[in-house]
Amino acid sequence: MTLSLPTHLPVVDHDELHQRMMGNALLAERMLNKFVATAPAECDQLESAIRIGDKSTVTSLAHRHKGTAKTLATHRVAAAASHLEERAATDSVSELLALLEELRQLHQEVRDVVGGESTCSAPENGAQRP
């Protein structure tokens, strides 16, 4: 099962981010950089939890990631994390890994926007790995 994300939205809503950071552009940039820097590790944690079937941890991590994404006005990322949170109870590991892969791709879009470089990209064929 894949998610139909709101692709018409920019990956980062800069106006909203500006408002949330109370007009502090440097803080906004720093928070976005922090996000793209920590997102790969969070995805790795999610992947581990998915693979061992730890549904509560998947729910918890996805929920927190959704909150972070909303704080940074990255609504498509938030929507993907929200979908992962909602589907965390499923027994379909492949479905959850597919959702996680979508999340990783969105992180890459954010990374492209902020000009950061990926330090920990998604594993190749991660969604298909047994």
Binding site: R20, M21, L27, M31, F35, R64, G67, T71
Partner: peptide, 12 residues
């Protein structure tokens, strides 16, 4: 527990 949310709040 979310460092980004915590730092944003602390800044506010």
């Amino acid at each position: 527990d979310d460092p980004i949310a915590a730092e944003t709040l602390a800044y506010a």
